[in-house]
Design a protein around this nucleic acid. Sequence first.
RNA 1: UCCUCAUUGGGCCAA
Length: 329
Amino acid sequence: FISWNALLACYARNGHLQDGRHVFNKMPQHNCISWNTILQGFVQAGHTASAKGVFQSMIQRDIASCNIMIQASGNCGNLKEAELVLLKMPMHNVVSWTTMVAAYVENGYVDEAKKVFDDMQERNSVSWNAMINGYTQNRLYGKALKLFLAMDLSGTSPDKVTFASVIDACSTAADLQSGRLLHSEVLQREYETDVVVGTALVNMYGRCGRLSEARWVFDEMPLKDVVTWTAILAVYAQSGHAKEVLDLFLELELEGPGAVDTITMVCVLDACSHSGLVADARQYFVSLKDDYGVNPAIDHYYCMIDTLGRGGRLDKAEELVENMPFEPD
RNA sequence: UCCUCAUUGGGCCAA
């Protein structure tokens, strides 16, 4: 029953486990996919123990069930257990190995990941991407770029995910030359309309200090989401261009509710802080919840305190420290 | 490329 499973997946994805359970119980029958969906729901919600319980109680398991358990173990840093699941499962597929690579990578074990990657029977673009991104995330950008070239030569075509990751490596390394090269390849493949690739490019140019190029990419993007907007705001905020930040933010506000998130507001407040715009900062700060739907977090308080301090309003800054609903550190 | 499983972009931290 495909529609039942689809409904189940919908709840599981959004973390509505109790509703998911309800649907599960109401279903006339379950197949392996139904069980896997429930299993994945627990794993995504971080309920590893419950996931293990479900896994044990499953009558039929398939490769996907085991793959989900590899991910579950990896998520809580239990790589021995992840390896054990991988070792004990009767059949493997490319997802099993790639999940293991990702598990090692996200726990910082790049060499172990590479070992699994090298030994894999079969690789697809996701496997390559997982390993390339492993280098990117662990700031081994030289290796990331090298593996990117190896991927190209291996006959597996880099996709949008590959480019996003390797462009990000250039951002971290502030490697403008490689970044530009990748940008031209992105244009050749017509990937520039992708929101994630585009945002990675905006960030790359910004981190390399090329504000106008960052802005140009931003302006050309047909689709922008909250991450895209925040990226361009951060580029301006970090280079001290508060006016651009506030102008762009006015445009962003026209996008309507839900267009900003907590990080966006940190960037806006940060821009005010660095330009001594105490009044603007105060206005944004007090409106966080009501106008922007953002719960004031400790980062917002820090920005506001910083703004007040720099503006010479030490009394107000101190008052805010004393009244903030967080432990000062 | 949508019934379940793996990879990608933004502030702070890190660099």
